[in-house]
């Protein structure tokens, strides 16, 4: 008799403890990065795949070091976009690093390239600049830093695939006008400073037409040597 009472008491206590734990979990948001970065998703998509807005970039699968550099630059106001500057202003470095790793680790499929709105001649000019550059005007090929497959290199050089022409062109414009800057030596500012508006349109349009490669992952650090110094990718 005593044993039975004790046993039931034990069951009741156990149930109460179990219920308490369950209630606590149910009353808290999931303890995951995905839940913590929901503020990013209206503009960048649930897995960082991008949204229908052509000015908001895909984040998924970019090198974590690149994403982290951008988060730091938005937080300090060096890279200017008030909605981003505002969101990140009071977040600590390790958290921004975790956010960068979270989106670097997401691999939703790359979108189908959209049909281009520019002429074949313009696309050909874009392809020429992206793949061979223009030595006479001091313009290196995109592939010389962003990789032969344009998938970027760990840890700091982003891939250029899966982005829309409007976004690429807006960023190149920002580099040219100095509203987007990066750690010195600011290689992209140097490159963009040599581009004309027509160059920007052409190269942005061509990049946006590129199909997804079999392996979209950025290549490991040191896979190839950069043609010049880059503050975002220290050797």
């Amino acid at each position: 008799m005593f044993a039975r009472v004790a046993a039931s008491a034990l069951v009741i206590v156990t149930l109460a403890v179990f219920d308490g734990a369950a209630a606590q979990t149910a009353n808290q948001p999931p303890d995951t990065m995905a839940a913590r970065v929901e503020a990013c998703t209206p503009c960048h998509g649930n897995k960082g795949e991008g949204t229908s807005d052509v000015y908001f970039p895909r984040l998924a699968g970019k090198p974590a070091g690149y994403l982290y550099n951008q988060l730091l630059a938005f937080r300090s106001g060096r890279r200017k976009y008030p909605p981003m500057n505002y969101l990140l202003e009071f977040l600590p470095d390790p958290y921004l690093e975790s956010m960068a790793e979270h989106f670097a680790g997401e691999h939703p499929p790359l979108p189908q390239p959209a049909p281009s709105e520019v002429s074949k001649d313009v696309l050909a000019q874009g392809e020429l600049l992206a793949t061979s550059g223009d030595a006479g005007r001091n313009i290196p090929a995109c592939v010389s830093c962003h990789g032969p497959g344009l998938t970027g290199m760990q840890p700091g050089i982003p891939g250029l695939l899966g982005l829309r022409a409007a976004y690429i062109s807006a960023q190149l414009g920002a580099w040219r006008y100095g509203t987007r800057t990066a750690k010195s030596p600011d290689c992209m500012q140097l490159v963009a400073g040599h581009l004309t508006e027509a160059d920007v349109t052409a190269v942005a349009a061509w990049l946006a037409t590129r199909p997804a490669p079999t392996n979209p992952a950025p290549v490991p650090k040191g896979t190839y040597a950069l043609p010049f110094g880059c503050g975002s990718q220290p050797n």
């Binding site: 948001p29 839940a35 913590r36 970065v37 929901e38 503020a39 990013c40 998703t41 209206p42 503009c43 807005d53 909605p83 969101l87 977040l91 600590p92 390790p94 958290y95 975790s98």
Partner: peptide, 13 residues
């Protein structure tokens, strides 16, 4: 609270 949860912006939606 080193990793706060964020509220999404709805201006665009």
């Amino acid at each position: 609270n080193p990793m706060p949860y964020g509220m999404p912006p709805f201006a665009g939606l």
